[in-house]
Design a protein around this nucleic acid. Structure first.
Lengths: 235, 235
DNA sequence: ACCTAACGATTGTTCAACAATTGCACAATA
DNA sequence: TATTGTGCAATTGTTGAACAATCGTTAGGT
């Protein structure tokens, strides 16, 4: 009871206002802009894992004060994309295998559970799932590796979105950013996501046809295999 | 396979080192100390929801620079304990009912799933669960309301800890801090946790005796009822 | 080869200044 | 009276410079 709002359906005017208005659209502050820039550089792999980010160089190239860079660093530290070592500096996070395992452990707690959650899914949720699947498949057709990875992430994001929790979505975004960092630092993962496209499709079908429990279990073993896959590639 | 490390058992030397050593024990920086102080004031209800935290007053009373206070604010903003409104200031977060519902939605995704996760629980995990239950009951005996609330939080923390994910634990800590803020701003919640002590005990027993699925479902309805309880108190 | 001292560079924190924005009091107007 | 401007005080946002604290390294001594 108390039907959970259909997350995808909530793209009406009211929701848009909800999102945009903490006080209209707040233009991002300088530290946020710096963090945005660095975050993108990191997850796209242009800033390699382990690289030191010196305050002066960044404040120089972006023309902001050192204090501003500093705040951007604390932002990114909270997202675990950089690590701060006292009196030594901040470095692009280098995800260890235990880290990666930890990440997948958390995903295995969240994602299957989201797939199992609440009453039935709304039509727009279903549509979003299918859209992500379709995007992935068509990206594969056109040989767009980046598109495949992106669609895959999108699918997982939608899955978690099914739970309809803003906070959970935010947390998931953080995890996905870390995932991108993993792949960025691994390299040679061009074909990594491809094999999972079909799984996404299968799980989507099951979830839609009401076989929620089977879908959830499928997603769990999916993630279990994925981490095993990574473990293999790293050893 | 690949037996998940027993989280409670990991309170040995190695784990302590793990925790303490990012580079030995890093003494907390000034912004962190300020954030620590404010966080405690907030979750204990000494700083009421909606209160504005002006940079000057805090930098004055704590004898730190405005910049430092500023960084502390971005820290707390990330934890959602304060909200920053551009050019207006930061205020102790006022959790709305939708916020609280969101919080419980997320907990309902995570906690039952953690209870269901992995292979069997290790002996020390079981012991930690039982300890939290015991602490809650004995706190009730001695009429220690704060002790009851604390033990309850401790139980939920242990439950999530069963998953053995550092990241998930960290996320859960954030959620629990928000929970404390909720109760702080609600007031009159002295007896709120008491009725759930028995549930904790029941669920613990089920989880221990291998009835994981029943335990998980029990925890889900537990949380469902808890949010309903709160909704009632607020209307 | 090993310990030690000194140095340079970077981070941590403070302080002061100024621009930008908000909220409000106050006045002007319909 | 109600409403619309206008100016002002206060607070935030950002910058720049300064200095202390710490780290890594290099040079020098044993």
């Amino acid at each position: 009871m108390n039907p959970r709002p259909d997350p995808a359906h909530t793209s009406g005017l009211i929701e848009q206002l909800e999102v945009a208005s903490t006080r209209f659209a707040q233009p991002r502050s300088a530290p946020e802009r710096v963090a945005d820039f660095l975050r993108e550089e990191i997850v796209q792999g242009r800033l390699v894992s382990g690289t030191q980010l010196t305050e002066e160089s960044i404040s120089g190239t972006l023309s902001v004060a050192r204090n501003t860079v500093r705040e951007a660093f604390t932002l990114l530290t909270g997202e675990r994309l950089v690590i701060r070592e006292a009196h030594r500096g901040v470095f692009v996070t280098r995800l260890s295998l235990p880290d990666i395992e930890d990440l997948y452990r958390m995903r295995r707690i969240i994602e299957p559970s989201a797939l199992r959650s609440g009453p039935e899914f709304g039509p727009s949720s279903i549509e979003s799932l299918q859209a992500a699947v379709r995007d992935g498949l068509s990206a594969r057709e056109s040989g767009d590796r980046h598109g495949v990875a992106s669609a895959n992430q999108s699918w997982h994001r939608v899955v978690v979105g099914l739970a309809g929790s803003k906070r959970l979505n935010h947390t998931m975004s953080g995890l996905l950013a870390e995932m991108r960092l993993i792949f960025a630092q691994m390299g040679n993962v061009e074909d990594f996501h491809i094999k999972y496209l079909v799984r996404n499709a299968e799980i989507t079908d099951r979830a839609i046809s009401g076989e929620r429990d089977e879908a959830a279990r499928g997603l769990d073993t999916y993630l279990e295999e994925a981490i095993a896959d990574i473990q293999e590639r790293l050893c």
